[in-house]
């Protein structure tokens, strides 16, 4: 066992861990940050995605001892950091509880079971950090290491677009089901 000093969501946390402890184990089992999920054991699903110095990585294949001194952001860190930023900057008018990407995911219905979402939201947040108006193709590519089994990705992509539109002050793009449909054919009416 070794005493590690990890900077997680802005806080420095000291804890004892074995050399083989992964960041996933430490976050979930030592720090109680259970928003970081375990889905596949070995780097195949992306549910354990966290940000390391702003970049999405897989906590299940990261040794905790090797990320000392780096900025680790988990899903639990997004909203508080957002609120801190809002408080610091007087021009921010909206001080929602949620980080804008989280808010967009919630609004767009991107959260079904929610199990892949913390990783997905972190991948999306990192994308929007480097490209605040990503094309659909770019969004798909940036999220292609995060498996979702519920949504078919559509509402997730819509959520990222919504966050981008919100950021730019644009109108939201209409979704397929919001387009006008044909007139009822008179069948099935009660």
């Amino acid at each position: 066992m070794e005493v590690l000093s990890l900077k997680v969501n802005g806080d420095t946390r000291c804890l004892a861990a074995a050399p083989q402890a992964t960041l996933l184990e430490v976050l979930r089992e030592e720090l109680g940050l259970t928003g970081c999920k375990q889905g596949c054991d070995k780097g195949d699903c992306g549910a354990c995605t966290v940000l390391l110095d702003g970049q999405p990585v897989l906590a299940c294949l990261t040794l905790a001892a090797l990320v000392q001194g780096r900025e680790i952001t988990t899903i639990e860190g997004l909203a508080p950091a957002h609120r801190r930023r809002c408080a610091e900057s007087p021009c921010a008018s909206k001080q929602d509880k949620l980080h804008p990407v989280q808010d967009a995911f919630d609004e767009a219905g991107a959260l079904q079971c929610g199990f892949c979402q913390s990783g997905m939201i972190l991948s999306a947040t990192a994308l929007l950090q480097r490209d605040d108006d990503p094309k659909r193709e770019t969004i798909r590519e940036a999220l292609s290491g995060n498996l979702c089994r519920c949504t078919g990705y559509t509402q997730i992509i819509e959520a990222v677009e919504r966050a981008s539109d919100e950021h730019a002050g644009r109108e939201h793009r209409p979704r397929a089901w919001e387009q006008p449909a044909t007139e009822p054919a008179g069948e099935g009416e009660s």
């Binding site: 992306g46 995605t49 970049q55 999405p56 990585v57 897989l58 990261t62 991948s123 940036a142 290491g145």
Partner: peptide, 9 residues
């Protein structure tokens, strides 16, 4: 190679 996360690592 692999996925965005795995290419970062």
């Amino acid at each position: 190679v692999a996925s965005p996360q795995l290419r970062a690592m």
